[in-house]
Computed example of a mutant assay.
Amino acid sequence: MANYTAADIKALREATGAGMMDVKKALEEAEGDSAKATEILRVKGQKGVTKREGRTTSNGLVAAKAEGGVGTLVEVLCETDFVAKGEKFGELAGTVLAAAVDSKAGDADTLLAATVDGQSIQAILDDANATIGEKIEVKRVARVEAPTVVAYLHKTSPDLPAQVGVIVGAEGGDEQVARDVAMHVAALAPSVLTRDEVDAATVENERRIAEDTAKEEGKPEQALPKIVEGRVNGYYKENVLLDQAFAKEPKKTVQKVLDEAGASVTGFARFRVGS
């Protein structure tokens, strides 16, 4: 007869983030002792860390902080949405974000080497990996510095944590303009700030595709240069932030809105979980 209750299972799951069957097995092995069961989960979890390295982490959350002219954005991934929306995973992400802010990390490697109470973030993730029983990793980190920096988080589902995160750095204007741009970035997912940041090989490939397509459509030879230029501009309007139609005022570009506000965007980052 089991010497633990449904309440014990629930409490241990909430405390560790581990799955139902793993918790039940640990409680059975520990004869109902929650402290001992927690140790069992951790030990067995550590044994499985290497096996989990090849697993796919397509769930998780994004977390951000903007303060004092600095914005930090992190993406923390796990395997299932059950873990992603758990309290323990949320607390772990909070620790990761705080470490990213304190260490001024701008990339994942720097963040993983940062320490909290003498323990590296990588070690903290390994412990969580062991206890929760899923592969957990920091996928991306971004840092933006500017006179004005805002952060925006968006939930794609009400029962999940934020899945889209944006930080935007700006000069001039007011904070509301920067916030509006951050919301625009979340919705329309530009890949770069300006045309100059688009890789030359990408532009050349877009020109080639545009020309081949126009020829396939039977367009006259003399019209090809104008058609190609128009389609390349269309690529810019889809992917370059300043060229995009502003989400709140589609008849204006983002550049136009910023000019009218006396502002400029100096940098941005956008993460969507798993993409």
Rank of each mutant, 00 (worst) to 15 (best):
E14A: 12
N233C: 08
V265P: 02
G69W: 09
V185E: 00
T50A: 15
S275N: 14
L77I: 04
K24C: 01
T110N: 13
V116D: 01
R270G: 07
E229W: 08
K237V: 09
V83S: 00
K36L: 13
A245M: 06
G169M: 09
F246E: 08
I227F: 03
A114I: 08
A200P: 13
V203P: 03
Q255I: 04
A170E: 06
V265Q: 03
G32N: 11
S120Y: 07
G274N: 08
N239K: 14
D174Y: 09
L193F: 06
S58R: 12
V168Q: 03
R143G: 03
V138S: 00
D126S: 08
E137Y: 06
N3P: 12
A182V: 01
V149S: 06
A93E: 06
V240K: 02
S58K: 13
E238T: 12
V177E: 01
A35E: 15
A64I: 07
R195W: 14
D159I: 07
K47C: 10
R55H: 12
L92W: 09
V149D: 08
V101G: 03
D107C: 12
H184M: 03
T50D: 14
H154P: 09
D109L: 15
P190L: 09
E67K: 09
I132E: 04
A151N: 00
V177K: 03
E211S: 12
E221F: 01
G32A: 11
A247L: 14
A214M: 05
V168M: 11
D259L: 03
